[in-house]
Design a protein around this nucleic acid. Structure first.
Lengths: 195, 195
DNA sequence: AGACTAACCGGAGAACTCTCCACTTACAAG
DNA sequence: CTTGTAAGTGGAGAGTTCTCCGGTTAGTCT
């Protein structure tokens, strides 16, 4: 008897068939990326493989970037929970400067581990790059920086610290210059120490 | 009698008809961008407008990004000449720290003034983003930084300073947060002062 | 149960980027 | 001037992303 009760002023819940399709599409896309790589992901092919029309994919996810983002979303929620309400040093409790450092390290790890997906996401339209997650990261970082470095332009500084942690730069540093994730984190530490 | 003399060991010069077509394509593309915006540039349409097959466009410029780059190239050459051999403070003669600052300011201006083109270029494949110009800028900046801040990891630092000066972030800062080019330069100055 | 309707579905098709290759042409050499 | 050929040409077509909309269905209400 788990009927969906209508909630006043709430957008109507997703229909059961639609939810099934969304799930199926995400599964298929994840599988196809695992085998063929994210840059060869064709939404036509995803639709075919999921036994769904291509229109359905677009209705559910808006565009290519939207689907990519859906694949990132689960980890992004975890990440946000970690720095908003999780344990120190990344969560509240530690001194701001330390939280900044922990946050940037965690972000580097995140970009490295989902490198391919972020590469796709970041080559989409700017709205995708700076919407949602970026805004949250930026606000969070700017708040910490305002505490750690009163007087500085925290918002610009946040942009400036976030900017080097982008998938295509990291990818370039790793493949073209042989840097490891650790080396990148060390670099960020140096940068922070200088500040 | 201005015949092209063959130069030993040199790749053969571009044929006259090919040069004409290249020129025509660039002109048409520039005009179409001026009227319709860079993100609505269709290479099919450029080809049609230039009375040329689409194959010719691709033979000349490789891909979409290649054509975009050709439109940026003239100013890029000027820019590189300015910081390699031009007058101080951006050119040689001024102290390294000052040259760094002048270089970053000039780069901000450049990205702002050709914002649309860079936006296109930077949303292409990473090879386009970090090929050619980036490599030159990075090498130049790293060299200056090695002099100005001996002991620091100049190469990483160069990446980190170049990263915030990217077209889509700048575009976002301008349109979404109302920052001017001056505000961005001021922010970079603050960052440099902290270092 | 039956009917109503908002949400959903699928696939044709428009618009684009890029590849391929049979044909054409500029131009250096004889 | 003629000729050989490397360079250049153009457009058909493959493979994408995304839009549109007539037909279908899940879930609710009586």
């Amino acid at each position: 008897m788990t009927r969906e009760l209508p909630i006043a002023g709430q957008p109507p819940a997703e229909r059961a068939d639609a939810a099934r399709n969304r799930q199926k599409i995400i599964e298929v896309a994840a599988r196809m990326i695992a085998t063929h790589g994210a840059d060869n992901l064709s939404l036509d092919e995803v639709a075919r493989e999921a036994n769904v029309g291509v229109g359905t994919v677009y209705r559910r996810f808006g565009d290519r970037t939207g689907l990519i983002y859906a694949l990132i979303d689960a980890q992004e929620r975890e990440f946000q929970a970690a720095f908003m309400t999780g344990p120190p040093p990344v969560g509240p409790g530690a001194p701001p400067a330390e939280r900044v450092r922990a946050f940037l390290h965690a972000l580097v790890d995140r970009k490295v581990s989902q490198r391919e997906l972020f590469l796709q996401l970041e080559s989409g339209p700017p709205s995708a790059r700076f919407g949602g997650p970026y805004r949250v990261h930026h606000t969070h970082l700017a708040t910490l920086l305002a505490q750690a470095r009163p007087g500085a332009d925290a918002r610009f500084l946040a942009d400036a610290l976030l900017a080097p942690i982008n998938a295509s730069l990291i990818s370039h540093q790793q493949s073209e210059r042989g840097m490891t994730a650790e080396a990148i984190k060390t670099g960020m530490d140096d940068l922070l120490r200088l500040l």
